[in-house]
Design a protein around this nucleic acid. Sequence first.
DNA 1: GCTCCATTCTTACGGTGTAAGTTTCTGCTA
DNA 2: TAGCAGAAACTTACACCGTAAGAATGGAGC
Lengths: 218, 218
Amino acid sequence: MADRRVGAKAGLSRELVFDAALDYLDRHGLPALSMRKLGAALGVEAMTLYNYVPNKDALLDGLVDRVMEIAFSGLPDPVSGDWVPWIREFAHKLRAALLAHPGVLPLAGTRPVNSPEALRTSERWLAAMRAAGVPLGRAMDVVNVIATFTIGHTLAEAGQTPGHEGSEPNLDERADELDPAEFPNLTEIIATRAGLDFDHRFTEAIDILLAGYAALDQ
Amino acid sequence: MADRRVGAKAGLSRELVFDAALDYLDRHGLPALSMRKLGAALGVEAMTLYNYVPNKDALLDGLVDRVMEIAFSGLPDPVSGDWVPWIREFAHKLRAALLAHPGVLPLAGTRPVNSPEALRTSERWLAAMRAAGVPLGRAMDVVNVIATFTIGHTLAEAGQTPGHEGSEPNLDERADELDPAEFPNLTEIIATRAGLDFDHRFTEAIDILLAGYAALDQ
DNA sequence: GCTCCATTCTTACGGTGTAAGTTTCTGCTA
DNA sequence: TAGCAGAAACTTACACCGTAAGAATGGAGC
């Protein structure tokens, strides 16, 4: 970044700040994200960012909303009466978006998502499911169960990623400390990789949930 | 805490430090937990804690393990061939333990749990399910799906709790900003509470998952 | 050229985790 | 009982954090 004189515009915008924050998060991880470093990445002092964001917490909230928007984008309108494939597609898109930006994952679990975009999407879901004969309360249950499961499962998935920045070693990393006599099944799992396929596990669980809920109403 | 002279024993132990940390977390929340304040709660300087814990991250990891132990404690050994009720009980106990210590919830989602106690419990699960005819890979899938769903769902539940310390308002808190014309279904949900019963939602989803998996093998 | 104002920078404060070094007390041995 | 070794606690220090308050600068409109 070429040096500017004090007061010269850096050409920032709320958009640009969020973009840079998401990029920084993807590149360096959540603990490394500070206002000073984000400012430096934009060629600006930390306090300058406060012209675009009230505080750091709001910045993090915005990042979650942004990733949710990515997950929602491109979802087709649920016109047909069959809501199951639509929700299934949403679940897989949400997982993909979270895995693409694993830095926001811990935030996504903690912060309620109530951006206008998210509310609009929820409303569309509910309307479509209701039109298909699902009671409103149950529709809300399905939406929330799918969303919370996806976040929980993807949190675990990202945490197991080889190179994650957590402090505790994951199962693979402590495979050699595992006494095969005391833990025969766990050692077999590590050796054969049976039950460690996240793609398969997620797909199957979502299908079970959707089939189960679909069977409840009719 | 009566003042001691330098060097006098405060009677600390690893146990006591973790106990105090969990208590502090329950009382003041995760962002408020610092080494200095935890030390003060124990009548001791911050650096003293480093005699019992290598660093703060290890302290947090230990807290997650401790809550998991609470969840596991009292679980009966799965002797009968029917593994479904046992896993169901585990899910509900895990949720209860997490809700009792909501401060550790964000940590539970992020950090892989590989304490010896947790590994022993997993091993018991797998052995029992296998004895009942479930293939090993599927048994692992069931265990992980139940655990990740429980964490994800309970994260959302604790986040919606009135008085949570998050920054974004939850759905109820922004009910009045919601335009009934644009969001008829969401407003109806808030008014009737349909689909907002966490107990019911969790119980039903767990039952659907267990029934679905049970139907796969046999 | 002058004024106004948005934008940016500077400075400062109280807080954080933790490395390094110092002091004090306790319990053992002689 | 005296002396000493090691454990336990404290002190100091450093680099970093979020952010409040105010000063400095640049460009836009007159």
